[in-house]
Amino acid sequence: MRDLRRPFGIAALLLVVAATAPLLLSAYDLNLLARFLALALLALGLVLTWGHGGILSLGQGVFFGLGGYALAMHMKLAGLAPGEVPEFMMLSGVESLPWWWAPFAHPAVAIIAIVAVPALVAALFARAVFARGVSGTYFSLITQALALAFATLLVSQQDLTGGFNGLTDFSGVMGLDLNDPGAGRWLYWLTLACLAAGWALVTLLLASRFGTMLRAVRDGENRVRYLGHDAAAYKVVAFAVAGGLAGVAGALFTLHAGVISPALVGVVPSIEMVIWVAIGGRLSLAGAILGTVAVNFARDKVSSAFPELWPYALGALFILVVTLLPGGLAGLRKRA
């Protein structure tokens, strides 16, 4: 394993600096930053799968959504007496809680589900596709179909999922009152802690033998197979880890934004997640975090001032970054 003292030292320093943000930023900006740091957790997963594994997922929103909905379902159930159903279900005439909602009333189940459900779905999906050697562009196209199917399903099952509007109007979570002005600070620190843990996990994975094997599979899958390794297994594990990270990102994002809805998890948001990483640098964890925060702040500023311009800007970003700057911002530093 590579010497990791330096990256961990720098990361610890940055973490201390980032922890002071609540003292410097307004509550609004702090909330934005916290949202974007939550999204950065998902971006770390993309560095693992896309940058180092060569697997381009255009459906990462699915796993983000699974995590977000898992927590949102818990928060919807938290204040209810036994036998009651959330208000949106009552309005559409659902009288008893569906069986797959019931376990989420328990906080421990919800917390485990935030990681376990997306990781498991990702693993099963990846196993099914990779098992027979289907990969590359084919895999990307299938993940996009997955994102479309997931979002369409959420919208159509209005009475069970909240439909187009998603799940919103949360009062609190696990003893924390979300309307309390101090809550934002705690959530920010929670997000920062999760991001740091996610960063450490992916850094260790990439520096380990697993990381080396993953890169070997990316660069020459058939050679790895001929050496007697199960190449697909490395990709499945990487994809599952990225799925779990996306799930946690979705749950944290739901806390900050106060909503999770199909519009946040479908085809378009899923592919936008890739551009955050492309801009920062697909091989660099720091670049991915930076890229995520920068693109999302730009989106917030541009799309509120000139909503017509944002799709042009985003489209141009996709074209220019990929053609002119395939290594992203982090690649610039290495070239210099």
Binding site: L56, V274, L314, G315, F318, I319
Partner: peptide, 13 residues
Amino acid sequence: LDTLLATWGVSLV
């Protein structure tokens, strides 16, 4: 894979 992303940009525009 990069072609996928660049042409998606064209699609957005």
